[in-house]
């Protein structure tokens, strides 16, 4: 009972973070801030959702796969964003400054 409530709170919080990430992608002015929104909010949101699912499912055959997916998403998502932003900066895409047109 209490465990289910904890799992529900975690999943709802994770979905909230994912929503904030989407909002960031839609509203931020340039490439760098958009990738930053995706990297941070989506990594945390995904971990929260997977944590909630793990608590909800307890120990089953599928939970090991859930843990693996969470670990690899946690490793790869920030790395991919890092690579994207780094390449863009090397190629000379200028970051947005206050006052620039969006």
């Amino acid at each position: 009972m209490i465990v289910d409530i904890i799992a529900g709170v975690l999943i709802v919080a994770g979905v909230g973070f994912l929503g904030i990430g989407v909002l960031g992608v839609l509203r931020f002015p340039d490439y760098y801030s958009r990738t930053h929104a995706v990297a941070k909010a989506e990594t945390l949101g995904m971990l929260l959702v997977f944590g909630g699912l793990l608590i909800h499912l307890r120990l089953q055959a599928g939970t090991a796969q859930l843990v693996l997916i969470a670990v690899f998403a946690f490793l790869v998502n920030p790395t991919a964003t890092h690579a994207l932003a780094r390449v863009a900066l090397r190629r000379g895409l200028a970051p947005w400054k206050r006052g620039d047109p969006t």
């Binding site: 690899f72 890092h82 690579a83």
Partner: peptide, 14 residues
């Protein structure tokens, strides 16, 4: 190739 060490370590791991 990317010169970023983050990219290399995580890539080789994955």
């Amino acid at each position: 190739p990317h010169s970023s060490p983050n990219m290399r370590v995580i890539g080789i791991l994955v």
